[in-house]
Computed example of a mutant assay.
Amino acid sequence: MARSSWVPIAFFLFLTFASTVQTVSAGGEGSLKLEECSKACEDRCSATSHKKPCLFFCNYCCKRCLCVPSGTHGNKEECPCYNNIKTKEGGPKCP
């Protein structure tokens, strides 16, 4: 009987660790509110010389995913939904 007493404790620790991992991650899908998209996209498109199309597509993608990757380029692994939106030709739609 003493051998099985560790199972509830291990399960509790697992659940505690799993919920901590989910809340610690910054950004990610659904981390923005709809009204925060324009500011996040302004930051994302700040370094490009093609601001108008960048802002248009960034806002389009943000409204669908509620997420914008950090930085002005790359880091798309932070937002899989944002990264997976493709053009008809199969290229990335979101900047």
Rank of each mutant, 00 (worst) to 15 (best):
I85L: 15
K39P: 04
L32M: 11
G71S: 04
A40M: 05
I9F: 13
T20C: 14
K88T: 03
F14H: 07
C79N: 08
N75G: 01
R64H: 12
S70L: 06
V24D: 09
E77P: 01
K39I: 05
V7M: 07
L55I: 08
C65W: 00
I9E: 04
N59P: 00
K52H: 03
H50I: 02
H50Y: 09
D43V: 10
S38N: 07
L55N: 03
V7L: 14
H73Q: 01
E78Y: 10
K51A: 11
C81S: 03
C41Q: 08
V68C: 10
P95G: 06
L66R: 00
Q22F: 15
H50L: 14
C37A: 05
S31Q: 12
F17H: 09
C41W: 12
E35Q: 00
L66H: 04
C61T: 01
G27E: 11
S25Y: 15
H50A: 14
C58P: 04
F12V: 15
P92L: 04
K86D: 09
I9L: 14
K88I: 00
S19P: 04
R64L: 14
S38T: 01
A2E: 13
A26T: 08
T48I: 00
R64K: 11
P92D: 06
V68G: 05
D43E: 08
K93A: 12
W6V: 13
K51W: 05
I85Q: 10
G71N: 03
T20W: 15
A26R: 14
Y60T: 00
R3V: 06
V24Y: 14
C41R: 02
G74R: 01
L13M: 15
P8R: 12
C94L: 08
L66Y: 04
S70D: 05
K86G: 06
C65T: 04
K63Y: 14
T87L: 13
K33Y: 07
W6R: 03
P53I: 06
K33D: 10
E78D: 10
I9K: 06
V24T: 13
I9G: 01
A40R: 06
K86I: 10
K93R: 13
L55S: 01
C61R: 01
C65P: 07
L32I: 09
S31R: 05
R44F: 02
S49P: 08
Y60C: 00
M1S: 11
N75F: 04
P92C: 04
T16L: 15
F11K: 02
L15G: 15
G30I: 12
A26D: 03
S4I: 02
E89W: 13
T23R: 15
K63C: 08
V68Y: 06
N83R: 09
N75T: 09
L13N: 09
S5P: 05
N59L: 07
S25T: 15
T87S: 13
K51I: 12
E78S: 09
P69V: 02
